[in-house]
Computed example of a mutant assay.
Amino acid sequence: MDRAALFDVDGTLTDTNYLHVVAWWEALRQAGHRVPMHSVHRSIGLPGEDLLDHLLGGDRDPAQDDRLSAAHDTLYATWFDRLPALASVADLLRTLAGSGWLVVLVTSAKDRELSALRRAIDADDAIAETSTSDDVEEGKPAPEPVRHALRLVRTPPERAVFVGDTVWDMRAATRAGVTAVGLLCGGIPRADLEEAGAAAVYRDPADLLARLGDSPFAAT
């Protein structure tokens, strides 16, 4: 039976979380909202509407959502030609694919953004499928994105490992019955990832690759 290696993208495979922080902060500032950057950072990984609800709460006007999201998207797109992949990402994905794992990207990115991220990762030959926010009704931390990814590759939860960098990733994976692995390169503390369900935590993709033999991948 096939095994599935599910990966979040922003902050997990690409060093892009802080670009999103700046883009959301500026979009919110332009609309008259003063939100600390550290609060924005802790919300990265949520779908746009959920992120805005999380940040603005009672001050949120849903009628502004599309305008705020469009402003974020426009600002973030200015970096599309130079999005940085994290070290050893392509090697990690190719090593897993070469060992029989079906690699699936599970992301909240939209199609144009995902294309830019895939160019940065530069390992299309190792990627079997992608699951985006457009494919599901609810984004992370709901389990639907993970469940959809599993359906794409016809793999049961017990034969999968999900790698992400946020508490939203960990919660989505565990709610779907999938082993969750956390990475610290997105800027979220180890304790928070473990509390959210991470079975193991590594510094970054290079660290996970170096320790793959004693990671949850070796036990799945």
Rank of each mutant, 00 (worst) to 15 (best):
G213E: 14
L56R: 06
H20E: 11
R190Q: 13
P36Y: 11
V201A: 02
I127T: 06
S39H: 15
L102K: 15
D50G: 06
D91W: 09
T174W: 09
R67L: 07
F162H: 06
H33D: 09
M37G: 11
T107M: 10
A218D: 08
D10F: 09
W79N: 12
D73P: 01
F162Y: 15
L209A: 01
T174C: 01
R82Y: 14
A85N: 04
E113V: 13
A149K: 01
H72A: 00
T220K: 08
G186C: 11
R147G: 08
P157L: 02
V178Y: 07
A109S: 15
R112Y: 04
D135K: 12
S99E: 11
D2P: 15
L212V: 00
D65H: 02
D169A: 08
A77Y: 13
R3I: 00
A206N: 03
L75M: 11
F217A: 00
R82D: 15
G139C: 01
D73F: 10
T14K: 03
L92W: 02
R82A: 13
P205W: 05
P141L: 02
E158A: 03
V9K: 10
L55V: 13
V163E: 05
A196T: 10
E137V: 14
V153M: 07
C185K: 09
I188W: 04
L150Q: 06
H33C: 01
I121F: 05
D134G: 14
K140Y: 13
A70T: 12
P62W: 11
W24L: 10
A85Y: 00
T130V: 14
D122Y: 04
D10T: 11
A191S: 12
D214E: 13
D214I: 05
R67V: 12
E49M: 04
A70V: 13
D134H: 11
A191G: 07
L208E: 00
D81N: 13
L152N: 06
A5T: 12
H41L: 15
D81K: 09
A142V: 07
L184M: 04
P157Q: 10
L51K: 09
A180H: 04
L209E: 09
L117G: 02
S131R: 11
P62S: 08
L83N: 04
T132I: 03
L86W: 12
C185S: 10
E144D: 15
A70M: 12
D169C: 01
D135A: 03
A173I: 05
F7C: 01
P156N: 06
P47N: 11
S215V: 00
L193G: 01
S69N: 15
E129C: 05
D169N: 08
L6P: 03
G187E: 00
A172D: 06
